[in-house]
Design a protein around this nucleic acid. Structure first.
Lengths: 159, 159
DNA sequence: TATTGTTATACTCTATAACTATA
DNA sequence: TATAGTTATAGAGTATAACAATA
């Protein structure tokens, strides 16, 4: 970011949202360094973990779990299939429903990356001293609040 | 996000980075609701504030202040100029340097939005109880740590 | 009629690389 | 040679809108 070049950041310095964006950008960059495979982005890693822990997960459920559109989950699974990290399997009862599960190679990828990601995350937490847990708790709180759609709009309408 | 549908989130539940992403996604979505103009994204708003507070700012400096590539700053300024929110002005001494400043319309946009954004941010802070300040402090700390660490390579290239 | 998977399309954000003009 | 601005291009992430097959 290279702050402090006699530049005036105005209201940005006071905004929670701006701090959040800066922190996330920093973390995003760090992720690729920590990850063993540079092509596995944070989003892809998250999807792989979800599929790994919930084999046979439907693609609509996956998209909802990740908070993205269905089409985005399609794209992710397409990408995994092209690299033979996951496969679509037809689920018996409902011919509309397809399940996704990891290939052995996909499982290996997740396992390898999880180790690296855990170390990375632990290092970050350590850098924050004892406040890592506090930060995580507040972030989760914030995410829950904003995801509970109407709450923010209501509050800012009232003020 | 619709968590808790008997879905196993695995290691994601323990990762600071994942909490950060969830929180940021939530905030990003709410920004457009708080903003008076849906086309002014968080990034564009940040750029407008920086130009407003630093009239005549060079586009390379702008890009560095925002932590993005120079080409990204070009695109932003192009977008502002097309909507007559900002103009490029030639700076006297160095014919290579161009300054960017807001038009009256741009200034009005920033002022209007800043009010809405401030209210939105205050509402978030209020929802977090007394912990808003703590969260912001920890995020800034995290951003500084990650930016410092990831700029080591850059710095040694520059020197 | 509603849902799952899918495709097409588009926009935001970001990056790399190469170019032009100037220093 | 170095820097400021620029253009071209690409890829990640996300969304909307439509469609087919199935329920």
């Amino acid at each position: 970011m290279r702050r402090g070049e006699a530049l005036d950041y105005g209201v940005l310095d006071t905004l929670l949202g701006y701090s959040l964006r800066r922190a996330q950008n920093g973390l995003y960059l760090h992720f690729s360094k920590a990850a063993s495979d540079p092509e596995i982005t944070p989003q892809r890693y998250a999807a792989l973990v979800l599929i790994d822990r919930n084999p046979g997960i439907g693609q609509t459920v996956l998209s909802e779990a990740m908070g993205i559109n269905r089409s985005g989950a399609m794209r992710l699974v397409d990408w995994f299939e092209a690299r033979e990290l996951a496969v679509r399997i037809s689920q018996s009862q409902d011919a509309r429903r397809w399940g996704v599960k990891l290939t052995p190679q996909g499982k290996k990828t997740v396992a390898t990356m999880t180790e690296a990601v855990r170390e990375h995350d632990a290092a970050l937490t350590a850098l924050l001293g004892g406040d890592g847990e506090t930060l995580k708790r507040l972030l989760d709180q914030l995410a829950d609040l904003t995801n509970r759609a109407s709450s923010i709009a209501k509050v800012s309408d009232e003020t």
